[in-house]
Design a protein around this nucleic acid. Sequence first.
DNA 1: CCAAAAGTGTTTTGGGTACACCCATGA
DNA 2: TCATGGGTGTACCCAAAACACTTTTGG
Lengths: 243, 243
Amino acid sequence: MSLKKEHLKSSNIDWNQFMPGISIDCVIFGYHDKELKVLVLEYKKTGLFALPGGFIKKDETLDDAAKRVLKERTGLSNIYLNQFHTFGSLKRSDHTPMKTVLENNEASFDETHFLLQRFISVSYFALVDFKKVEPVADSLSDTCQWIDINELPSLILDHNDIYQKAHDHLKKSINSEAVGLNLLSKTFTMAELQGLHESILGKELNRTSFHRKIMLSGHLKRIGKKKTGKAHRSPYLYKFIQQ
Amino acid sequence: MSLKKEHLKSSNIDWNQFMPGISIDCVIFGYHDKELKVLVLEYKKTGLFALPGGFIKKDETLDDAAKRVLKERTGLSNIYLNQFHTFGSLKRSDHTPMKTVLENNEASFDETHFLLQRFISVSYFALVDFKKVEPVADSLSDTCQWIDINELPSLILDHNDIYQKAHDHLKKSINSEAVGLNLLSKTFTMAELQGLHESILGKELNRTSFHRKIMLSGHLKRIGKKKTGKAHRSPYLYKFIQQ
DNA sequence: CCAAAAGTGTTTTGGGTACACCCATGA
DNA sequence: TCATGGGTGTACCCAAAACACTTTTGG
């Protein structure tokens, strides 16, 4: 654990192994407690928030770099990942936030520091099982934590735009089995799946219509009753059919 | 004209003005003679084909860079442009095609030549009015010419993948008014618009259903009769309503 | 008059939604 | 028995597609 953090310590990093000028930013979605959440970093002693990101090794595929970044932040492999846009506005050339971060963390640095260049950001969104994730901060950040999408703070640079576009893409792909398959546990109740869809779309759905639509898609299989211990009838559990 | 070419001569270019490691590739669609076409470069004396591309100036927005590249190749401003994917496979690190090109064009070059690095490619697709375009080759290429999408040659690196993904995006956006508005002349017949849709989708469409659907969209306005000189009734002309 | 072009009427299909209503069940 | 969960039947709306048919019109 502390080994992992040491590994990420910025002053120990050989920045030369990365392609200059290109970064990867990730919008990592999780679902818990009936709320859709996103992993957000908070930089030490600065009050600055950002999406987790990273860089591309010179001999590494773009998609592999994204997988690696995801693994560093969540500990997970085999994550559902989707590139959705590349951001290259000049807003990204404002180095004041990163200078603030470095001033609070590095003994010394100069204007040529790797992190103080203009980056074009290739952005991915990821869907992960909340329960399996242990958020890991990097050495420049205190925390990497889940934030409810309705309580997102102001993020550095254009990261709020990035989040917004990621959420738009998630809405568009609501009918893909990937959404439920990756954001929920292996088994779940119909009410949980409906709650997830409602969180993503930001509106309530009709229960019976939702039920029929989902079952007609053919991706779901009912597997048994849940024992809740509560009064009244207990809900069935479902899982996605793996083809 | 020759001034413009001189300006593009590769040995005259200050490569240092561009961000390293990132390129822009464009899939430029045009429609003519009932066929969907794409602008393709042929490198001098090599038999190698590629999509037109360019680089990003250090103080230039990603989208502005794409607009500039488009203008260099087509002479047009105000082009309909859409970023659709960023490519970063290791296939892109194969420098043999570019070495072949340079060997046939430059007096001398070494392994550190700007064009012999690994590029991540941010890709755009563009829709242009065939009639308004004058394709302009760069100094490394003989020709920049329209090629029927059904007769595309094998392109360098992953450029065939890039084209394929661009075409997929074009199919998905078939119901956007942008498709007809940008690929056809200001006025056109219903048969021409239907032919365009058929070329993009690669299948025939029912005339009456197409007519009804298009008119119900509310974007089209009928403006008058076309004088064909042929026998039989002449078709009406339509144009898109600008809001 | 002929054939191309334009337009209408009707039907079917399929997805999505809304709602009423019934069945099952666990404490 | 009753509140919750699960499920069906029906109806409605809408976009898209398929097809038959009529009207218009330039030469």
